[in-house]
Nucleic acid binder design. Structure first.
Lengths: 316, 316
DNA sequence: TACATTTGTATAACTAGTTATATAATTAAT
DNA sequence: ATTAATTATATAACTAGTTATACAAATGTA
């Protein structure tokens, strides 16, 4: 199909669907050719029953990768066709153990030669082709099991978008964003405290003039994340990392990670050896991020914030 | 899936179906991830509309390999969603030309980045794998277009079964089969004639004792095909190939071909240079077979059979 | 020019699966 | 010994396609 060359790989689902239709349409004709009264969709269930003497519906479903209702319906059709029957000898009355009937066993023998012919025909196509479809499907099953397509796409999205995120130095025009973004999350989870207002309303005086720094993450030139480095005096630490906030609208772009990395870098530039932070364990994604950035738990320092129940440090 | 290793290639349809389900399930989630109000199945139609400014439903269906009703339904859904609209400016009133609306154009722009991300993600999987699924699908589309799966399987069936066909010399026990098989086809298409009864009721006297031969095709030890070589005197031909009959139950096993080849071989053994046959053009498969065996049309010989309207010879 | 055939679309009914949910039987937990 | 949770199955309702068919418009032909 020329169409798929134009569209690109994102039409993989459509391409697979068409090939599936082509193959399964012929499957029905093949049973006809061999004069077997059999519906192609029965095959995986039927095959399982020729292997396992007795097996429940749910077990079959797991074995062949169908949903349980799908197998349930197929079983009913095959019972109606006289190929299988319920086998009463089970203690668990919920279970519906099924086995092949005489007729079923007969058909399984009749079908055997047919399956071999199909196998040879498909092997023939594989031999004719450069790229092995069967092996490719097997690999894809494995690779998508490891990491699903949605996961892979979402990672790619993050990667691309984080490239468009710029980390900039604080300017007066970002004061409103600095305040809003922080008020947003603080008041969602906690109460705003005195110390918060001071720093957020007047970062110039309370952070920058005291030797601190503020970085802003810009996405499409809009400030979507902020983080501050606050000078600590009379302490083993040089700076506290604080007031980190990312707009919920800009989630999934690794903005927290980029800000954290940039802040650590900035601290190093300023000659710092160790930085410190305070947080609360109910902020699980934040705590995770801190660990990823290399922070480790420390204990016993004083803090003006009620909401603090975890303290961490990063050795630069 | 372990299952597929056990079952073998004949479960290719099932394997494709499962992979299709896995991929298309994630496709829906991907649109959600990008916040686009869009149904995956719309995509091929939508894509075509972004390429072609104006296009009819049937043209779209051909382009993307769907049935026309499928596209018809998708178009209706997309019109309801406000993505496309009917474009009145067509003379042919049967045609329903459709174009993207403003909203549709907007979404096509929004979707662009998403498609690129999917493309990158899928390219990633292809890069991770040894067997290229995308390329394999392309090859299979081509190869199955050239010769369908049912055709390939049916050829394999024929090939295998013809191996189980044995060509044997005539024995008295085959007289009944020789008669029945011939009466069957002759009386279906024509009337039995005097010359038929003579030869069929008493092949010993009328064929063998006069220097002719009869060969019998056996499948599972049952006679399923017969053919005679009748000595011709006072003629440029050494033998006439006649009374060829194959049981309809044993069709598709190349029995006619095997008998014809064996008869020609036998004639050569007996020192013949040219053999002759008479037939009727309404027996198309038979005439085809004779051509395949190397016979060519000749004209103007006398014949005792009313049903004869074509005469052929084979130079050995 | 009138009639038959072809073309373009829509609709109905089907297929092979799915998810959601109800029910009964069994197992686990207090 | 109850009660709660889990398991096995069946059923209903949905999805993304299909084929068969009806109907109107356009085209071809005697």
């Amino acid at each position: 199909m020329e169409f798929f060359d134009k569209v690109g790989k994102s039409a993989l689902g459509s391409r697979l669907r068409l090939m599936t239709a082509v193959v399964t349409d012929d499957a029905a004709k093949i049973y006809e050719l061999y004069g077997v009264d059999f519906v192609p969709k029965w095959f995986p269930v039927f095959y399982t029953l020729t292997e396992e003497r007795e097996i429940t519906i749910t077990e079959i479903a797991n074995e062949i990768g169908h949903s349980q209702p799908s197998v349930s319906k197929i079983i009913q059709e095959m019972i109606a066709a006289g190929l299988i029957e319920e086998s009463a000898k089970t203690e668990d009355k919920r279970k519906n153990n099924v086995v092949l009937t005489e007729k079923g066993i007969l058909i399984s023998k009749k079908i055997k030669q047919q399956l071999e012919d199909i196998d040879v025909a498909i092997e023939g196509i594989i031999a004719e082709s450069k790229h092995n479809l069967w092996a490719a499907l097997e690999e894809w099953e494995f690779l998508l099991e490891q990491k699903s397509l949605i996961k892979r796409v979402s990672e790619q999205k993050k990667k691309r978008e984080s490239k468009d995120v710029k980390i900039a130095e604080y300017k007066a025009e970002y004061q409103e964003a600095f305040r809003t973004l922080n008020v947003e999350w603080i008041s969602t989870y906690f109460e705003m405290e005195e110390a918060d207002y001071k720093a957020l309303d007047n970062p110039e005086d309370y952070i920058l003039k005291k030797g601190g720094k503020i970085l802003v993450a810009l996405y499409e030139n809009e400030p979507v994340g902020v983080c501050a480095l606050i000078k600590m005096n009379n302490s083993e630490y040089d700076f506290e990392m604080a007031k980190m906030a990312v707009s919920p609208k800009a989630q999934g772009k690794s903005i927290g990670w980029l800000l954290g990395k940039a802040i650590a870098e900035k601290a190093k530039e300023l000659g710092a050896k160790k930085i410190y932070l305070e947080s609360n364990t109910i902020l699980k994604p934040a705590i995770n991020l801190y660990y990823k950035l290399g922070f480790e738990k420390v204990f016993g320092l004083e803090t003006p914030y009620k909401r603090c129940n975890i303290q961490m440090e990063l050795v630069l």
